[in-house]
Nucleic acid binder design. Structure first.
Length: 323
DNA sequence: AATATGACCAACCGCACAGCA
DNA sequence: CTGCTGTGCGGTTGGTCATAT
């Protein structure tokens, strides 16, 4: 026996709202407020579920909402907060006046995730892919290293495929990263080339791991160097030239300076353990309350108006914990 | 010109939690 | 303490439009 549905599904209209419905809901709320969502559709003369009315109001009709494109500053805020908070859209949205959690979530899923991937940054951990590879490599005993390419490919296949299939990859760039160009005549990788491309990526990753002598650095094997040099180079080559973000990944990885976007998108592993501890402590107050979950965490005002102001942390030191 | 594919975003769904009787 | 109700939240779906083939 499940939960009682919030409304009679048979008698309610679903799907897109009409201007007439919008008007009915808006004028009713303007007169009576939003006290009981279950009664609002009935009183407003709408054949809608109360929940649907609430959603329509909070996500679209509210007069204080901003409609339109996200500014660079807003995007940067989202990325920075996401690196700390993860998918807590309501908390993130609370820091963006006029934006709803749905707006932020949609914008993240459709735009920001791809932008970060295009820059060679994992949108989940906010670390460069190169650092993640390095972290995996350093946790593996030598006999396990051959499996790294397989594992890495599993992790990043989607991002790589996206880049390979959507962005132009010149033969020069492919050669730079140690791969034979898939097709020198056609710059777009076709669907049937994917498997071959994946195999070549695997080969390139394996070679970069196993044979650092062939890397541009010509340094003895060092996971950090190999990760930064080889994979940063790889990701740099993949970075979309038309993405609107002209940051070389190698500078992201090796220097960690540059624009605010640069810093917030790529906190990297430069964060000190102390800072991470501070962050963790901020997420767990002195009463032992777990800020990482539960209702308090959802309360953006509580979190951001407290003395523990996350904004005070230099953005390059904001690093989300590995999930 | 027709069709396929992808991007975007509004809306829905189910779960969790708070408040109340 | 328990059960019910209302609300908030994050994940997912589906419709529409734009672009590519």
């Amino acid at each position: 026996m499940g939960r009682i549905p919030c409304c009679e599904k048979d008698n309610v209209k679903r799907g897109q709202w009409t201007p007439e419905e919008d008007h009915k809901l808006s004028s009713y709320i303007a007169q009576h407020g939003t006290r009981n969502w279950r009664l609002i559709p009935k009183h407003a003369g709408l054949q809608r579920c109360g929940k649907s009315c609430r959603l329509r109001w909070t996500n679209y009709l509210r007069p204080d909402l901003k409609h339109g494109q996200f500014s660079d500053a807003e995007e940067q805020t989202i990325v920075t907060l996401h690196s700390v908070l993860g998918n807590r859209w309501s908390v993130i949205a609370a820091q963006l006046p006029g934006r709803t959690d749905n707006d932020v979530k949609n914008h993240w899923n459709t735009k920001l995730k791809k932008k970060l991937s295009g820059m060679g940054i994992d949108p989940v951990t906010h670390k460069p892919f190169s650092h993640l590879i390095t972290e995996i490599a350093t946790t593996l005993a030598p006999p396990q290293v051959p499996h790294l390419a397989e594992a890495a490919l599993g992790c990043f296949k989607d991002e790589m495929l996206h880049l390979l299939t959507k962005k132009r990859i010149g033969s020069y760039q492919m050669q730079q990263i140690g791969l034979t160009p898939v097709n020198t005549a056609a710059t777009h990788v076709k669907h049937e080339d994917r498997d071959e491309t994946i195999e070549k990526i695997k080969y390139g990753i394996s070679r970069a791991i196993k044979d650092p002598e062939t890397s541009p650095t010509n340094k003895p094997w060092d996971p950090v160097v190999a990760g930064s040099a080889n994979f940063a180079g790889s990701c740099n080559a993949f970075a979309a030239p038309d993405s609107g973000f002209h940051y070389g990944l190698s500078s992201l990885v090796n220097e960690g300076n540059g624009s605010a976007w640069n810093q917030s998108m790529c906190p990297g592993s430069s964060a000190t353990g102390d800072r991470q501890c501070q962050l963790d402590e901020k997420l767990e107050d002195e009463n032992g309350q777990d800020w990482k979950g539960g209702k308090e965490m959802r309360d953006g005002a509580t979190l951001f108006n407290s003395d523990c102001v996350l904004w005070d942390l230099p953005s390059e030191e904001l690093m989300s914990p590995m999930v």
